[in-house]
Amino acid sequence: MTVAGDMCTEAAGVEAVSTTTPGTMAVGTAAQELRLKRGEFAIAVHLGLIRLIVRQDGGRPRVGHDELDRLRAQEGFPEALRARVRTVGTAKGAQQLGISPDRFTRLARAGCFTPITFYLNRYRAIVWLYLADELSGFAAREPRLLVGRSPAWLLGRLEGGTDCRARNWRSRRVERLLALTEDPWARAAVLAETLDPVQLAEVIDDPYERAYLARIRPEPAFGPTGPPLARETMAHLMRADEPDEMLWRRVSLVMELDNARETRPAPSPGGEWRDFAPPGDGRAPEPDVRADAGSVPANAAPDRAYVSVPESDPAPAPVPVSVPASVIGSRYGSEPDSVHVPTGVAKPAPGLLARIGLRRRVSKATGRQRPGRGRAPYGT
């Protein structure tokens, strides 16, 4: 049995301290002091019952001695703490609710209660686990769903093949991770994890931004433990798999990226930083248009609307230039044969549908249809 319980909880942004952390201990030692298993400890962190300390140097999170003293001082320790993080599977959950395992599975698939974690059995099948406390609360709120005939709305969901377990677990995990941090880039990294690489590239054009988000992605409290199969299953379950959910994650990521770029730019290779902050009017920075259009190479990149000038030559004064549609038309959609770009006038940024990759554009220069990209490169 491959347990994935300690992989569902991250220790991002709870409390940042310096590289020297006196009066702390490792999470493994803290779990033993609190008489919790690794999976129980991870669930307690996920629920906010235990606060971790994250070091500024990026090391493994730790637990302060004052946090252990606070938990030990609670009434009913350690039984009360273990009861709050106790999980049950389908068989024990059905027994707790007094229903059959088949009815329990139908209620879970319809989204009546949300899993807290999962593990892979010996057949490599996903086994969902639920909080025993939440099942007791559900039984008290919805006693009519436990006896008699199932309502029409529940039967309609099941007949349509609905299975809300993975989606509800994913939404719960994303909401908790977003609540753990206020850093806009870390929040964007959480949302980026819900999209597959192809969709992520459609939303975020810049590969350096994607690499930065992957680097600051929240990690489990105990590190990337478990076999590769469990980690692959975790990554697969984190990705949105329904059209409405994917659209919502795309829109949320675009909004979070706008906030992150205004706060600070993402680092690029060589120690360079790109100025992602828009000017006061909220538009993208205007291009540096130099020389004349005749010096534009025939194979110029479609996202470049300027001409590079050698360092040895003095930079001429900016003048208006007519840029061919093959240069900027593919970025902003259908354009006439020649587009006059006067100096000081910025090209309007694409709309939200184009930025999340849901609107297709036709380039008259090439006659081909291009899928919508995420965000127009800054400086165009």
Rank of each mutant, 00 (worst) to 15 (best):
residue 32 Q to S: 14
residue 83 A to Y: 00
residue 93 G to I: 08
residue 55 R to L: 05
residue 62 R to H: 09
residue 40 E to C: 04
residue 13 G to K: 04
residue 43 I to D: 05
residue 88 V to Y: 06
residue 28 G to Q: 08
residue 72 R to I: 06
residue 34 L to G: 00
residue 59 G to W: 05
residue 26 A to N: 10
residue 79 E to K: 12
residue 53 I to H: 04
residue 60 R to P: 09
residue 34 L to M: 02
residue 63 V to S: 00
residue 50 I to G: 09
residue 42 A to K: 02
residue 19 T to S: 13
residue 59 G to Y: 06
residue 43 I to L: 15
residue 79 E to H: 10
residue 14 V to E: 04
residue 47 L to E: 14
residue 34 L to T: 00
residue 56 Q to E: 13
residue 33 E to G: 05
residue 66 D to S: 14
residue 21 T to K: 11
residue 68 L to F: 04
residue 64 G to D: 07
residue 99 I to R: 13
residue 16 A to S: 10
residue 87 T to A: 05
residue 87 T to N: 00
residue 20 T to E: 07
residue 16 A to D: 01
residue 30 A to W: 08
residue 11 A to V: 04
residue 18 S to L: 07
residue 19 T to Q: 10
residue 39 G to P: 02
residue 98 G to K: 15
residue 77 F to G: 01
residue 33 E to S: 13
residue 39 G to K: 09
residue 23 G to W: 10
residue 73 A to C: 04
residue 55 R to K: 14
residue 71 L to E: 03
residue 62 R to C: 08
residue 81 L to P: 00
residue 67 E to K: 06
residue 82 R to K: 07
residue 67 E to L: 00
residue 19 T to I: 10
residue 58 G to D: 11
residue 14 V to H: 14
residue 74 Q to M: 10
residue 23 G to M: 08
residue 21 T to Q: 12
residue 29 T to G: 08
residue 56 Q to W: 03
residue 87 T to L: 11
residue 49 L to F: 07
residue 54 V to Q: 15
residue 35 R to N: 06
residue 64 G to Q: 05
